[in-house]
């Protein structure tokens, strides 16, 4: 564990708490993509299969995995049931097959071992890299967003961004590289570039998140 990964994980935790806070206080999931949230459930379920196979990394690792699975399922429940009337499926129209199918094919091609758990692990890494697309698509379509929704997206972007210095650190301290995670992680972080530009130049200056026309 190093400071980059720790703060990355904390940013990831923060993003979930921000999202829960937004939904609970506004009693609305307006502007939140159910599809992105469902993809995260798929990501966690397929990546954390090792939980059920007796692989033990650390108490921290297990606790976080259980939290990510539990909280992502809870968020789906909130959107689908508790606040379903505030969810607008007509805005959330990104076709998830375009993300699921290529991620699965990439998982079949690029993996560390051709076994179910390893292919699923790779699939989850590729899927996570692009899972934010439906959420960004809603932003794109509406052209604006509540500040709290943008804080959620920013925390998610910071999370994966911080993993990059973590990998550089691990390369020098342990001599190990995880090429699949690194390539997907760089792509994932890159997808936030446009968003971050608007976020840092507008939202953090106290202005509304509005995309240029």
């Amino acid at each position: 564990m190093n400071i980059f990964r720790l703060f990355g994980d904390l940013a990831h935790l923060a993003s979930i708490f921000i999202l829960l806070h937004k939904v609970q206080t506004s009693r609305s999931c307006r502007g939140i993509s159910f599809k992105t949230q469902a993809l995260y459930v798929a990501v966690f379920m397929t990546r954390y299969l090792d939980l059920f196979l007796g692989t033990w990394v650390s108490f921290y690792n297990t606790l976080m995995k259980l939290f990510f699975i539990g909280s992502s399922c809870y968020i789906l429940y909130l959107i689908r049931f508790q606040f379903r009337t505030t969810y607008d499926p007509n805005l959330d129209t990104f076709r998830v097959e375009y993300l699921l199918v290529p991620s699965f094919i990439l998982g079949l091609i690029f993996n560390y071992e051709f076994t179910l758990t390893e292919v699923m692990w790779s699939f989850s890494i590729f899927l996570e890299a692009v899972a934010i697309f439906p959420q960004l698509f809603i932003l794109q379509r509406t052209g604006e967003a509540e500040a709290i929704t943008t804080h959620y997206i920013a925390a998610l972007g910071i999370y994966r961004g911080l993993y990059i210095p973590n990998w550089i650190y691990r390369y020098y301290s342990e001599g190990s590289v995880d090429p699949i995670a690194v390539v997907a992680g760089i792509v994932q972080t890159g997808l936030y570039a446009d968003f971050f530009y608007v976020y840092f130049t507008k939202v953090l200056q106290g202005q509304r998140f509005e995309l240029p026309a």
């Binding site: 090792d50 995995k65 071992e113 190990s176 995880d178 995670a181």
Partner: peptide, 10 residues
């Protein structure tokens, strides 16, 4: 060790 390491990250 390169290239494989057990998945110890989240």
């Amino acid at each position: 060790p390169y290239p494989y390491r057990p998945h110890d990250e989240l």
